[in-house]
Design a protein around this nucleic acid. Structure first.
Lengths: 253, 253
DNA sequence: CGAGCATTTGACACGTTTCAATCTCTGTGG
DNA sequence: CCACAGAGATTGAAACGTGTCAAATGCTCG
């Protein structure tokens, strides 16, 4: 199996058990960390790319004033530390639950990139999506209040986990971690979640997120899932029957 | 001249007059827009990549609630609409001053990418830097107050314009545009700029930014320019004498 | 000279933070 | 089996930063 096929399979079908794949010959090691591990620390000179197989974690940056900002919570299929992204040096990766990741040495990636032009395009799409997520969060933090922002975030997580059909999902993030993600305080996240619950929009209690009225929530948050779509090219560099443009999800907003 | 050489030259030496280059045979058209033009509109199905040669502009996103968020103010040498980045559809590009850009058709880019493996790496580095800028802004907006945030932004612009040696620069952005960039109101940007001036840190009046005490400003903002460095690989895919890792700037913080 | 846009200033309102407790779990040791 | 500790969640009251509203000033261009 090529690295490209591996990436495509882990990302195309989120229901698959990642361990089904024989990745030995790819020089990719699946590795498990317990909850609360520092998989990468800001400042590390790491030279590996990490692909999330299962579990929750967060990417964070620590500021000189003592605070931290959570950049994103990568989910199954997300790729961290793309080639040329000097990622490990400036970001920490901490597991929230037990987590399984594939760690790809830079050398392996370099070779694979030389051999397969489509792989570069694939990484480019992944990078584009991650950038779109960061830009959407920036927009959210600047232009939406706490209620809209939290609603938007919970909707984004649901779509990234499995699409618009998801009615509820487990989320092990603490209110403090959500606060550090959305630029709020833990206390205000608490009040905001209460209001979302009292308005019968979403309920987030005991690690379980349940949508009560997804439609109203989408409207409140001004949520448009377009930015989460992988932008498959209409014509791959070489024939590639695996993916068509139509593979994207239908908009929910 | 190859596209890669063109990109390298326009980005390596910001002092060069971009019009010196003969770009005809690259199928790259230099094009000038007057101030206030909509070079790209959110929703356009554009299939071109834009390289900024000179002038100021901003990338913005419009929300359903009527507000807008300015994502970035690209400067000379910045590249917009990288391949796979479904950029034009979700972002607007508006000129603030008269601006000259190179517009590269997707087809040209596609061919160039197939011919030169280093070009893909080059774009990857550009994408990484843009992502780092977005992440730093997200961090800034979430964890710095108006004073620190504005200070940080003015420092970032100076470094992107010419490095730490820049004592003053012209900036045609209005307070309203800066507000839409930093997640503030125009009125509060005004108050903040006044305080920065009264504290004798930076002066921003009549389109001119002048550093009064860059050292104190860096400290106030918690500014570390590491995220602005292009992450040149230690070993390019093929020998490439033009760039070495040491080509980066020295940290200022 | 006046229109239009950007800037500047003041007073007040509001959203979010800060501070201080209390409450609810869950796991652990006596 | 219960007491306890510790982490997370919840609530209230007050403080603070930024937004909102309103108006005046300055600048530039026809």
């Amino acid at each position: 199996m090529t690295l490209l096929e591996f990436l495509q399979s882990i990302q195309a079908d989120l229901m698959l058990d990642a361990r089904r794949f024989n990745t030995d010959f790819l020089d990719i090691a699946p590795r498990t960390y317990p909850a609360g591990s520092a998989i990468n620390r800001q400042g590390d000179q790491s030279t590996k790319t990490v692909i999330v197989a299962s579990g929750w974690s967060y990417i964070s940056r620590h500021l000189s004033n003592g605070t931290r900002q959570i950049i994103d919570t990568p989910l199954k299929g997300d790729v961290l530390g793309l080639p040329s992204f000097d990622w490990g040096a400036s970001n920490s990766l901490t597991s929230v639950s037990d987590i399984t990741v594939y760690e790809v040495p830079s050398q392996t990636l370099r070779k694979a990139l030389e051999q397969d032009a489509n792989l570069g395009m694939h990484f480019s799409r992944i990078a584009a999506r991650q950038h779109a997520i960061a830009v959407e969060r920036l927009t959210s933090v600047c232009r939406r209040n706490a209620l809209e922002r939290t609603a938007h975030y919970l909707l984004e997580l649901s779509e990234r986990l499995g699409g618009i059909a998801v009615r509820r999902y487990d989320c092990p993030l603490t209110q403090h971690e959500i606060a550090d993600t959305l630029g709020l305080t833990q206390i205000h996240v608490n009040r905001t979640l209460r209001e979302l619950r009292e308005r019968e929009l979403v309920s987030f209690r005991a690690g379980s997120v349940e949508f009560l009225s997804r439609q109203k929530l989408v409207k409140l948050a001004g949520f448009d899932n377009g930015y989460l779509r992988y932008n498959w090219p209409s014509q791959p560099l070489r024939p590639n029957p695996a993916h068509k443009p139509a593979a994207g999800q239908a908009p929910s907003a």
